[in-house]
Amino acid sequence: MELIVALGLIVFKVALLIAILLLLPLPLTWLERKIAGHIQQRMGPMRVGWHGLLQPVADGIKLLSKEDHIPAEADRFLFKLAPILALAPPFVVFVAIPFGETVSVLGAEITLYVSNMNVALLFVFAVIGLEVYGVIFGGWAANSKYAVLGSLRTCAQMISYEIPMGFAVIGVVMLAQSMSLLDIVRAQADVWNIVYQPVGFFVFFVAGLAEAQRIPFDLAEAEGDLGAGFHTEYSGIRFAFFMVSEYAIVLLVSVLVVILFFGGWNGVLVPLPPLLWFVLKVAFFIYLFIWFRFTFPRYRYDQLMAIGWKVLLPLSMANIIITGIVLF
């Protein structure tokens, strides 16, 4: 009986997580367009629902009802596989991510995470590394020059920014003496890691921007020169898959920044519920992503590589060495 309850709970949590991740792009696209509009002194969507609130739903219906077009020269199998390969890793990653300690529902203590892995951080980086396959396959299978160029850029960018990203969190792991995200957050109960690891945070955040392919590192889908990058040839629901995965990665990077450097659900000064603190912090970082997008221009390809290899990598290594010396 207990086993069934426990299993049911896990299934419920996973279902809830999937539902949240699938539905979150709707408010996020609305928010992005609204913020874009107001930064550019426009209003953004206004006509569907109150202040355009139903605009993402209308867009979703439009995408669903559009022709699912596969180019004649495309590799049909890879073309169909790519969106799913791009969509799955961000969803899988959230299994390892804690959103809080426990909440009590009807007297029972329910943990706010699906699993507490002792190598959660490693799992996150391993799975998010698979994301690049969806991009490679999507760009290659479409048999279009823009898509291939976009996917080449994306691959180079993702692979070269995963290295400083991985190095940047080593300082955090050293401080917490654990790779479990739960332990990392618990270690920050008094002082957040941002105090000890400002350089680590900087490297991680910049690499996260590149990983999520957001401006100023959105070379992969540079609208001006590549159409839409690796998903140029995609339409309808397959295109929506890529969009959902993009927003899931934005959410993931925000969540990771909060967990690793900003104390997770630990609050300061104001005693709010831990989950609310967590959501507020994540919302702030998502806003930061959108704010950056409509402020900065795009880096050139060589600048992108130079920042990754000549700035972020040495910085993250120096961060590891200094953290090690101080801890020793």
Binding site: Q40, Q41, T295
Partner: peptide, 24 residues
Amino acid sequence: DLASALALTFGYMFSRSVTMQYPD
């Protein structure tokens, strides 16, 4: 330089929109 750019766009975000809502 990046910070001043962010401050500028933040200021614009809370300035009035110039959109004329014609014909709504």
